[in-house]
Every structure is written in C-alpha cells, then in structure tokens.
Simulated scan of single mutants.
Amino acid sequence: MTAHDLAGLHLERAGADGPLVLCLHGIGSSSAAFTPQLRALAPDFRVLAWDAPGYGRSADPEHPLTLDDFADTAAAVIRAHGGRAHVVGVSWGGVIALRLAVRHPGLVESLTVADSTPGSGTSPDKAAAMRARVPELAELGPRAFAERRAPRLVSPQAPDALVRRAVDTMAAAVRLPGYSYAAESMATTDLRDELAKVDAPTLVLCGAQDRITGPDASQVLAGGLHKTAYVIVKDAGHLANQEQPEHFNAWLLAHLHIVTDAKTSKG
C-alpha cells in the first residue's frame, strides 16, 4: 500500500452509532492493543482501531513512510468515516496523533495521548536507541524480539497472562520494513516546538510505572499543550490502557463525554 491508500489497511471496528473515535497503537503493537477500549466505548461511540501500514493485518507500504505519511493516512481514515474524530494514541500512536492534530486540525475533535513522548529525536542517544531496534528485529525475528522487549511494557507486578499477551501481540504485529519506517519516524521527530500549535482538547495519561517513555515525557507533553489534563494511572506500566483498563477507560470516557457535551451545548 502507499501512504493515504486505505485499501490495504486493516481496521477493527466497534459500535454502530455516535461520534467517531480512532485508536492508534504503539510501535510494537496493533489494533489488538485496544480490545478493552473497543468494548468500553462501543455503547456510545463508533470506534476504529488500525493496524498501521506495515503492521499486523495491514499491507506493507510500497515505499518508506515518514511521520507525516502516517499522520496523513490517519487523516484519510477519518475523512473516509465521517470527517472528524476523537483520536486516541498510545506511545508511537500518540506521536502520530499529535502530528495529525497539527497537520489536520479540522479533523480532530479531541486527543487522548497515553504513555507517549515528543519523539525520539529529542536527543541523539534516544534517536540512536530507536534506530538500533531495527537490526535487532532483523536478527532475532518477531517472536524472539517480542520475548526480549514486551515484558518491560508492563509493570513488574503485572500478571503472567498480561505479559504473555503483550509478547503475543508484539510478535504478531511487527515485521520489516514497516517497523523500520516507524522507528525512523520516531528517531527524526521532536514535537516540543509543535505542541503549542495543537488546538484540540487533550487528555494526557501515563502509567505510574512506565519504564519505556515514563511520566517525565508525558509531563513534557502536558506542559506544552494549551488545553490539557494530565493523569497518572496507578499500578500500570507503559501499557496502561491494557494493564489498568477500568481506570484508563473511566478517564477516557469522561474526557470524550466532556468534549462531546460541550460541543452539543454550543451547537
């Protein structure tokens, strides 16, 4: 598939009516990461969760994709399903969501950015570490790569079943060249100067025990955005939406309903 081409893009769907919500997963994941959110949001919202281009059940891109390409493809999904959406992004998906809000502000009703970061281009060390993942995946293959990396995505006290699910999700989602394009999109990105341009009301969440991006990175996002609320999710690691879905979903639903009700009252 090419950037903006939706023919090869896999979307998980839930709900039949209500405002549109688009969910964008992290760099080592897929639409499967949002199973708890699809169930929780379906009664009140139309929910889409993508497998990003080159991930999971989506087709491989025909050429390298930049962060702008991923954001523009997300914009094409929104246009194809009604024209505006609440966008939920986890980790890399949050970076895409923020760039989407800058490039296509008219398509974004609100943002929820979870366990995310301004990008790995904020320092040479972070950029190098992100790029180093690509030869690691090539050498190990998806299963061994996932077994090495996925356990750190949850808190140390996470149940074994959640750890196994994180490994299985990553192993089924990642492959080359899609992962390499995603890693490069992170390595070349520093959103700190763009945050002030985001006009959409934004909920920033982070697991208290996130060992990947960490609360400090989420605080940078929350501090740089104008219309924002910042929430720490107790007893959760980087996959806060999966490790503590009840708490995560309660905050997410409250945010979505506040924004939706405010729009209705203005209309």
Rank of each mutant, 00 (worst) to 15 (best):
V134D: 05
L256F: 01
V174Q: 00
A76D: 08
V88W: 00
V233Y: 09
R39E: 15
A59C: 03
L38A: 10
Y181E: 05
M130S: 12
L38Y: 06
Q157P: 01
H238V: 07
D68G: 13
G214A: 00
A187V: 09
T73S: 07
N241S: 14
A158V: 03
S91N: 08
V113I: 11
L140R: 05
V220D: 01
K126M: 15
S265F: 13
L9W: 05
V174I: 08
L252S: 13
V204N: 02
A236L: 05
S31E: 08
V77A: 02
H226F: 08
G223N: 07
I78D: 00
T122S: 12
G56Q: 07
I96D: 00
Y55C: 04
V113D: 00
Q219L: 08
A183C: 12
F248L: 09
D72T: 10
D5V: 01
I258Y: 12
C23T: 10
E12L: 11
F45E: 04
A32L: 12
R175E: 03
L20F: 11
A196G: 15
Q242E: 15
P245L: 10
S116N: 07
A128P: 07
S120N: 14
V95Q: 05
A173C: 09
H63Q: 14
A75Q: 05
L107G: 05
V47H: 08
R143G: 03
E246R: 14
